[in-house]
Simulated scan of single mutants.
Amino acid sequence: MPDAEIRRGLQARSGAEVADVEMPVFWVECKHHRQVNIRAALRQAVEAAPQGRIPIAVTKDDGAAPIVTLGLDDFLEFVGEWWTRRER
């Protein structure tokens, strides 16, 4: 997303949900702990994501590389788009 405006989300004071990272297409929930509960992080993203935004969780356990988690339906949609656009 080279030309996209991507920035850190700010916690809403009005009670409205905001993503941890503001960007097109995705609703990003970020977590960092000794051992992150990946399912809970993704569930939080799914529950907060507005219509039309793809919920993802970016999580990082202490001393480990970050990972991205998304639902199977969203993943299969990405794979399907990639498959139809790939160079043959």
Rank of each mutant, 00 (worst) to 15 (best):
P2E: 10
P2K: 15
A4T: 00
E5F: 10
E5I: 09
I6L: 13
I6N: 00
I6W: 06
L10Q: 13
Q11V: 06
Q11M: 01
A12V: 00
A12I: 00
R13V: 04
R13P: 04
S14G: 15
S14F: 08
G15S: 08
G15L: 03
A16E: 13
V18K: 14
D20P: 07
D20F: 08
V21C: 07
E22C: 09
P24M: 08
V25W: 10
V28D: 01
V28Q: 02
V28F: 00
E29G: 04
E29M: 08
C30K: 02
K31F: 06
H32D: 04
H33T: 14
H33P: 01
R34T: 10
R34E: 10
R34Y: 10
Q35T: 11
V36F: 09
N37F: 03
R39G: 04
A40D: 12
A40R: 10
A40V: 03
L42D: 07
L42I: 04
L42N: 03
R43W: 01
R43H: 11
Q44M: 03
Q44K: 06
A48V: 02
A48T: 02
A48Q: 13
A48H: 10
A49D: 03
P50M: 05
P50E: 05
P50S: 06
Q51P: 01
Q51G: 00
G52I: 03
R53G: 02
R53Y: 11
I54T: 14
P55I: 01
I56C: 01
I56T: 01
I56M: 04
I56Y: 01
A57V: 05
A57Y: 03
A57R: 05
V58W: 03
K60E: 14
K60C: 15
K60A: 14
D62E: 10
D62C: 04
G63Q: 11
G63D: 07
A64K: 15
A65M: 13
A65T: 08
I67E: 12
V68E: 02
T69D: 05
L70M: 15
L70E: 00
G71K: 09
G71N: 04
L72D: 03
L72Y: 08
L76W: 11
L76M: 15
E77M: 07
F78R: 02
G80D: 06
G80R: 10
G80I: 02
G80P: 00
E81A: 11
E81Q: 12
W82I: 09
W82F: 15
W82T: 03
W83F: 03
T84A: 14
R86V: 12
R86E: 12
E87I: 13
E87M: 07
